[in-house]
Amino acid sequence: DTINITLPDGKTLTLTVTPEFTVKELAEEIARRLGLSPEDIKDTHNGKTLDPSLTLAEYGITPGSTITLEIK
């Protein structure tokens, strides 16, 4: 299953994830792909900052969802 990550420059990154991924694991994968530190990444969905300890499923993030990435 894939989700879309909207980057600060407007580009989109597509990642393969499972509903059990935590937001922290997602940030780590994004950081790895972009050459950043996971601590520099802030993920938001529907205007809410995502708690790193919760899973994508707990936020109702499903395949095809879009998450907005902010760099701290």
Rank of each mutant, 00 (worst) to 15 (best):
D1T: 14
D1C: 15
D1S: 14
T2V: 10
T2M: 08
T2Q: 10
T2Y: 12
T2S: 10
I3T: 01
I3Q: 01
I3F: 03
I3S: 02
I3A: 01
N4G: 05
N4I: 09
N4A: 08
I5G: 01
I5F: 05
I5H: 02
I5D: 02
I5L: 06
I5W: 01
I5Y: 01
I5Q: 03
I5N: 04
I5R: 03
I5A: 02
T6C: 14
T6V: 15
L7E: 01
L7I: 05
L7S: 04
L7Q: 02
P8C: 13
P8G: 09
P8M: 09
D9H: 09
D9P: 02
G10L: 03
G10H: 04
G10Y: 03
G10W: 03
K11W: 12
K11T: 12
K11D: 07
K11R: 13
K11G: 11
K11H: 12
K11V: 11
T12W: 09
T12Y: 08
T12D: 02
T12R: 09
T12F: 10
T12I: 10
L13T: 03
L13V: 07
L13I: 11
L13R: 01
L13N: 00
L13Y: 09
L13C: 06
L13A: 03
L13G: 01
L13H: 04
T14Y: 08
T14S: 09
T14W: 06
T14R: 11
T14L: 08
L15S: 00
L15I: 13
L15F: 07
L15C: 04
L15M: 08
T16M: 10
T16R: 12
T16N: 11
T16L: 10
T16C: 09
T16G: 07
T16E: 09
T16D: 07
V17A: 02
V17E: 00
V17W: 15
V17L: 07
T18R: 08
T18D: 05
T18Y: 09
P19Y: 04
P19E: 06
P19K: 09
P19L: 08
E20G: 07
E20Q: 12
E20V: 08
E20Y: 11
F21D: 04
F21C: 11
F21V: 07
F21S: 11
F21I: 09
T22Y: 01
T22K: 04
T22I: 01
T22M: 02
V23C: 08
V23A: 02
V23L: 12
V23T: 02
V23Y: 06
K24R: 14
K24Y: 10
K24Q: 10
K24N: 05
E25R: 08
L26G: 00
L26P: 00
L26F: 09
L26S: 00
A27T: 13
A27F: 15
A27Y: 15
A27V: 15
E28W: 11
E28P: 00
E28F: 10
E29F: 14
E29Q: 07
E29M: 10
E29V: 10
E29P: 00
I30H: 00
I30Y: 02
I30D: 00
A31S: 08
A31V: 05
A31R: 06
A31L: 06
A31C: 11
R32Y: 07
R32K: 09
R32G: 04
R32M: 08
R32L: 08
R32N: 06
R33M: 12
R33Q: 09
R33H: 11
R33C: 08
R33S: 06
L34F: 08
L34Q: 01
L34V: 04
L34W: 05
L34K: 00
G35V: 02
G35C: 12
G35S: 06
G35R: 05
G35D: 06
L36N: 04
L36Q: 05
L36D: 01
L36E: 03
L36A: 06
S37F: 10
S37P: 12
S37T: 11
S37D: 10
S37N: 13
S37A: 11
P38T: 11
P38Q: 06
P38A: 11
P38F: 15
E39Y: 09
E39K: 13
E39L: 15
E39G: 15
E39Q: 14
D40H: 12
D40C: 15
D40F: 14
D40W: 14
D40G: 10
D40K: 10
D40T: 12
I41H: 03
I41W: 09
I41N: 02
I41Y: 07
K42N: 09
K42L: 15
K42A: 12
K42D: 08
K42E: 10
D43V: 15
D43A: 15
D43L: 15
T44I: 13
T44R: 11
T44G: 11
T44N: 09
T44M: 12
T44D: 07
T44E: 08
H45Y: 14
H45V: 14
H45K: 10
H45S: 11
N46Y: 10
N46T: 14
N46K: 06
N46C: 14
N46F: 15
G47M: 10
K48A: 11
K48H: 13
K48D: 09
K48S: 10
K48T: 12
K48C: 13
K48W: 09
K48L: 13
T49Y: 13
T49N: 08
T49D: 09
T49L: 12
T49R: 10
T49W: 14
T49I: 12
L50C: 14
L50R: 03
D51C: 08
D51V: 04
D51R: 04
D51L: 04
D51H: 05
D51K: 05
P52M: 14
P52L: 13
P52H: 12
P52E: 10
P52N: 11
P52Q: 14
P52K: 09
S53E: 09
S53A: 10
S53K: 11
S53G: 08
L54P: 03
L54W: 10
L54D: 03
L54F: 07
L54C: 11
T55A: 04
T55M: 04
T55V: 03
T55G: 02
T55K: 07
T55C: 03
T55Y: 03
L56P: 00
L56C: 04
L56V: 02
L56S: 00
A57S: 08
A57H: 08
A57W: 11
A57T: 08
A57N: 06
A57R: 14
E58L: 03
E58T: 03
E58W: 06
E58P: 00
E58Y: 11
E58R: 02
Y59L: 15
Y59D: 01
Y59N: 14
Y59S: 12
Y59W: 09
Y59P: 00
G60K: 02
G60P: 01
I61L: 06
I61D: 00
I61F: 07
I61V: 07
I61M: 04
T62N: 07
T62E: 10
T62M: 12
T62D: 05
T62S: 08
P63R: 02
P63A: 10
P63G: 08
G64R: 01
G64V: 01
G64A: 02
G64C: 03
G64T: 02
G64D: 04
S65G: 05
S65C: 13
S65A: 10
S65Y: 05
S65V: 10
S65K: 04
T66D: 04
T66F: 07
T66S: 07
I67Y: 05
I67R: 00
I67P: 00
T68Y: 14
T68G: 06
T68K: 14
T68S: 12
T68E: 11
L69Q: 00
L69M: 07
L69P: 01
L69R: 00
E70D: 10
E70M: 08
E70Q: 10
I71E: 04
I71H: 06
I71N: 04
I71G: 05
I71S: 06
K72F: 14
K72N: 13
K72S: 12
K72R: 13
K72T: 13
